[in-house]
Nucleic acid binder design. Structure first.
Length: 709
DNA sequence: CAATCCCGCCACTCA
DNA sequence: TGAGTGGCGGGATTG
């Protein structure tokens, strides 16, 4: 408790200035204030460790917060408890309103905060609460509401210059919840780069500054991974269609995909690649579940759904999605609709640029982002470790034992991360299509000329591609697009065609809709209120690479791969080297080895599962040779340092991108953040068995230490 | 009864 | 060895 108090005090002290009150007696009150107060700090100081800590609570710095037993079960009357109550408790009505309305709208921004915000808002809420309910309803304790509170503490668009550190411990205390819950929120936020982990117990808040870029990346990645195809298939076919997929049990391995972080990214990808921008939990769960398991599948499905609800709640709080329901025959089928920005390119840029990146060359950073491990391929148990953003500092494990835990490996080693998505049962077709994207490694990068057809020996691979359409998409403006668009449409049409649903969807409550709309503007990037999405639909590439599984891609469970080639996702034109053929062994094992390093430009790095047979593995990486613009866009994050990344430099430099080191500063974090996405894949399927938790769930390593530069 | 999803045990890792 | 993380799923709530 002491600790808490201290930290709170510190916080309070700040607050005091404003309020003038200071006694412990008033602690509760203060706490409120504190909580609400945005912790914005001035730029960090040099010392990384301390620096970050500066955040809100000086004392906490360290990070290993002491556990306060009470946290979990705070005494009702303790300050903490009160705080908790205050915060969480709202009168029923308010609650309801909140939930209905507010949930969807972020409170955080001042601007946003207007009338109704009050309800939710700190003060007001607090007042009400006492009396109201002692016994918070489930809703009051919902993750979504908690997330809103969390978001309310920080600005959507923090000043680039200021670094806002978040101490999990402190936040947990402030919000009156167990830390475990904060992890749930933070993991999702981290998946979208609203925050970046700097050290244990310490995150840096980026707000929505990087959101557009992140979304852009996710969209691109999603397409690269073939999610759009999966979505189409799924939507078109009966939910069960895919089921029959052979379930190879390879599946066992894929644990890691489970990480909330990755799931969150994938979930978002589904929205972004969906034409309708709507996703049902059922579909999402199935797509995200690795296909294989039959037996366990049901339980897995349930678990997946549980997690998706968690994620959905957070995304809802972010105003990125909203829940609708479809009337289905006889079941109520929840469906989520994307209400976040559809066209992310434009603004993201500006914002991002500004802030982040001023810093250092990317070269230094190590890879951090990647934490997820979903792809991790290796059969070995270890495989799964998730990537840690933090540093891979720990040498051990690096290469050896963990086969490929790229996550930890330093960038260099890891260069290639492989993303894989497994699609669960293939849709009607029966086969699942999986897209793998590989980061173009320098070494490998070979450039293919457009309009090429490549055949890969030993693997029934047919690569089709044509040069890509120029896209004007970057930066928000879409090129005239014609062909591209057309092609895209065509693809979609074909592929999907059967999709139904939209008509049946209805918004859950009118109210919510209204809110959303209105909120949309506020919460989501200014752009749209709500719907604009569809049009923007991203680019579909017309080229695909089909890899028959039979070929012998072991570990792939009979999955056939359909890889989109050259998409321009995200505005990047996929030009050069759309695909790579890489011997799996190399990738996997050599973690450290060279190739990994290549990555770069594309941003996406992937690790290959060792599991994959040596057979050639083809990967599509759209990103490689991008136009300058593209580069910019893509690297947005990096841009700052941007200079380093000049377009030209890009290719070469790319490695650096990958290598980012742990961000010592938030800015850096932001920069590297981008790389973050690289991880999304779900290699899981390939992966080994229960490598299970290894991935990193446990303490993630932070690099910060050295990053301190 | 199905949809939600809170809660917290406990496996993992790292320091 | 303890602390930070976070996967996971039981089971309570809600609708």
């Amino acid at each position: 408790m002491e600790m808490k108090c201290l930290s709170l005090k510190d916080l309070i002290s700040v607050r005091k200035i404003k309020t003038g009150s200071d006694d412990t007696d008033t602690m509760n009150e203060q706490k409120e204030n504190i909580c609400m107060e945005r912790r914005i700090m001035t730029p960090l100081k040099s010392d990384s460790l301390t620096g970050h800590r500066r955040v809100c609570s000086p004392d906490i710095t360290h990070i290993t917060p002491i556990k306060h037993p009470e946290k979990s079960h705070p005494d009702p009357w303790t300050p903490t408890a009160n705080l908790k109550m205050l915060i969480s408790a709202a009168s029923p009505d308010i609650r309801d309103r909140e939930l209905k309305k507010t949930l969807f709208r972020p409170i955080e921004n001042e601007e946003k905060v207007t009338e109704e915000d009050d309800d939710l808002d700190d003060t007001c809420q607090f007042e009400v609460l006492d009396d109201s309910e002692r016994r918070p309803s489930r809703k009051q304790k919902s993750l979504g509401l908690l997330c809103q509170k969390f978001l309310a503490l920080y600005p959507d668009y923090p000043e680039p210059s200021e670094s806002i550190n978040i101490s999990l411990d402190e936040v947990a205390t402030c919000l009156g919840v167990e830390r475990r819950r904060i992890y749930d929120i933070v993991n999702v936020l981290e998946s979208l780069l609203l925050v970046s982990r700097m050290a244990k117990n310490l995150y840096v808040w980026h707000g929505r500054s990087l959101l557009s870029k992140t979304l852009e990346e996710l969209e691109r990645t999603g397409r690269e991974q073939g999610y759009h195809l999966l979505m189409d298939q799924r939507e078109g076919s009966s939910p069960h269609a895919a089921q029959h997929t052979q379930n190879t049990h390879v599946a066992s391995s894929r644990r890691k995909d489970k990480s909330l972080r990755i799931m969150s990214q994938k979930f978002v990808m589904l929205f972004l690649v969906s034409k309708t921008r709507t996703v049902t939990l059922d579909t999402a769960a199935k797509i995200l579940i690795e296909e294989g398991q039959d037996d366990s599948s049901h339980s897995k499905y349930k678990t997946k759904v549980r997690r998706l609800y968690d994620i959905a709640n957070v995304l809802t709080s972010l105003n990125l999605i909203k829940k609708l329901h479809v009337r289905e025959e006889n079941s109520r089928k929840p469906i989520f609709k994307w209400i976040g920005p559809s066209d992310f390119r434009s603004d993201s840029e500006s914002l991002e640029v500004s802030g982040t990146h001023t810093v250092t060359g990317t070269a230094e950073r190590r890879e951090k982002m990647v934490r997820h491990s979903s792809f991790q391929v290796v059969p070995t148990p270890h495989v799964n470790r998730r990537l840690i953003n933090s540093a891979p500092s720990t040498p051990h494990r690096d290469g050896k034992d963990e086969p490929v835990d790229f996550s930890r490996k330093s960038v260099s080693s890891v260069a290639c991360r492989l993303q894989f998505e497994d699609s669960p049962r293939a849709p009607s077709a029966g086969s699942t299509s999986v897209a793998v994207s590989l980061q173009p490694e320098t070494p490998y990068t070979a450039q293919f000329t457009p309009q090429t057809v490549a055949y890969l020996p030993q693997t029934p691979v047919l690569m089709l591609y044509s040069s890509h359409v120029p896209e004007g998409i970057i930066q928000g403006q879409r090129s005239p697009i014609t062909d591209q668009k057309r092609a895209r449409e065509e693809d979609e049409n074909q592929a999907v065609k059967r999709r139904k649903h939209s008509s049946s969807i209805e918004s859950e409550t009118a109210e919510s809709e209204c809110l959303d709309t209105r909120e949309g503007s506020s919460g989501n990037e200014k752009e749209d209120g709500v719907e604009k999405r569809s049009n923007t639909d991203p680019h579909h590439s017309s080229q695909y690479l089909y890899v028959s599984n039979t070929a012998g891609l072991n570990g792939l469970n009979g999955l056939n791969f359909l890889m989109p080639a050259g998409h321009t996702h995200g505005g990047m034109s996929a030009v050069a080297v759309p695909y790579f053929l890489v011997p799996s062994p190399l990738m996997a094992s050599t973690g450290p080895t060279s190739r990994a390093e290549g990555a770069a430009g594309g941003n996406l790095s992937f690790s290959m599962p060792t599991v994959l047979s040596p057979a050639r593995f083809v990967m599509a990486g759209g990103a490689f040779g991008m136009s300058d613009k593209v580069n910019n866009a893509e690297h947005h994050g990096y841009r700052g340092p941007g200079s380093t990344l000049s377009p030209q430099g890009l290719r070469k430099e790319s490695p650096r991108l990958v290598q980012m080191q742990t961000p010592s500063t938030p800015k850096e974090a932001a920069m590297w953040s981008k790389s973050f996405f690289e991880t999304p894949g779900a290699f899981g399927l390939l992966a080994s068995p229960p490598a299970a938790r290894k991935r990193g769930s446990a303490q993630r390593k932070l690099d910060i230490e050295h990053s301190s530069n």
